[in-house]
């Protein structure tokens, strides 16, 4: 079969061209580390990779929510610890005042209790790092407790703030003050103020004082139990966060592996392909030059 001279050049050039294109593609893959350069390289893997990286970033989002929840709950944990300690001190103070007291002794106890009440109101008005009140429900920009003659009034609401900490799990990250300090009609602030009023009243009979102290002890005990219940539930939630974090990081690892399987380049294979293509290209170039260098005209003298 006769071959036209154009065909010889055309065929040589187009083969060399396609080898160079393959090399440049390999080069792009090697420099990016990715097997899939455009969705058309592997449409199914490309869209699967989108899904996986979406899932991964959603997972990361929950992780950041958990970290916020952790900060909030740790704040509550510390604050509830201080409150428990304070209430226990108050109980000790009150038990010490159970006998018959002199006017001076009554005054001392009253002063101690007044100071403890102020500390308690301060603790109940604790703010988190963002400046939000921890015991205010949704009204977290409003100071939840204001001291009054008969204890303290609550300015917050009873709403629990939820955070999405995992795909199917929303966690309560606050503790509305009414459920901590005024649960079940037992207002801890009134208990303080009631006994302080009795102690400060010079007309109070020893029997009235003793009765008042007994009521206060019982009320503070109940309050301590309520706070302890809230505290323990905060602890439980912190534990749950730890568990969710473990699951979250193991998921993150899985997603990273899945993405790598879908997208990443097999370097050993790619580098070996590159060498192979280079050998072929060199051979093609050499043979092209040899073939096109042959011409009958060279022999016509």
């Amino acid at each position: 079969m006769r071959i036209s001279t154009n065909t010889i050049y055309q065929a040589g050039i187009s083969k060399i061209g396609s080898l160079q294109a393959e090399q440049s593609r390999l080069q792009q893959q090697i420099s990016s580390g990715k097997r899939i350069l455009t969705p058309s390289d592997d449409p199914l893997a490309a869209s699967r990779a989108l899904e996986v990286s979406h899932a991964q970033s959603v997972n990361a989002m929950y992780a950041s929510n958990r970290s916020i929840a952790n900060t909030n709950l740790t704040g509550l944990d510390i604050s509830l610890g201080s409150i428990t300690e304070l209430l226990q001190t108050t109980q000790v103070t009150l038990v010490g005042a159970a006998g018959t007291l002199s006017t001076e002794q009554k005054n001392t106890v009253a002063i101690q209790l007044t100071a403890q009440l102020e500390t308690l109101i301060g603790l109940a008005n604790t703010q988190d790092s963002a400046g939000n009140y921890m015991y205010a429900g949704y009204q977290n920009r409003t100071k939840p407790f204001t001291a009054t003659a008969t204890g303290a009034t609550y300015n917050g609401d009873s709403n629990q703030q939820l955070l999405q900490v995992e795909g199917q799990r929303q966690l309560v990250v606050n503790a509305p003050g009414d459920s901590v300090f005024q649960a079940g009609g037992n207002d801890v602030f009134s208990a303080f103020s009631d006994i302080i009023t009795i102690l400060n009243n010079p007309a109070s009979t020893p029997a009235a004082v003793q009765a008042g102290v007994a009521t206060a002890i019982s009320s503070i005990k109940t309050a301590t139990n309520t706070v302890a219940a809230v505290w323990s539930s905060v602890g439980t939630r912190l534990n749950e966060l730890d568990a969710l974090n473990d699951v979250g990081s193991s998921r993150d690892l899985q997603y990273t592996e899945a993405l790598s399987d879908l997208q990443d380049l097999d370097y050993a294979q790619a580098l070996s392909d590159l060498t192979q293509k280079q050998t072929i290209l060199e051979a093609a170039q050499k043979s092209f030059v040899t073939i096109t260098g042959l011409s009958l005209f060279d022999f016509i003298r």
């Binding site: 071959i3 036209s4 001279t5 154009n6 187009s14 011409s295 016509i300």
Partner: peptide
């Protein structure tokens, strides 16, 4: 296209060695 072009060229294209002959 490349294959058909080669066929067409094998008939109609110029081969310089042939022209030298």
């Amino acid at each position: 296209v490349a294959q058909t072009t080669a066929t067409q060229q094998s008939e109609s294209g110029v081969n310089l060695d042939e022209e030298a002959t």
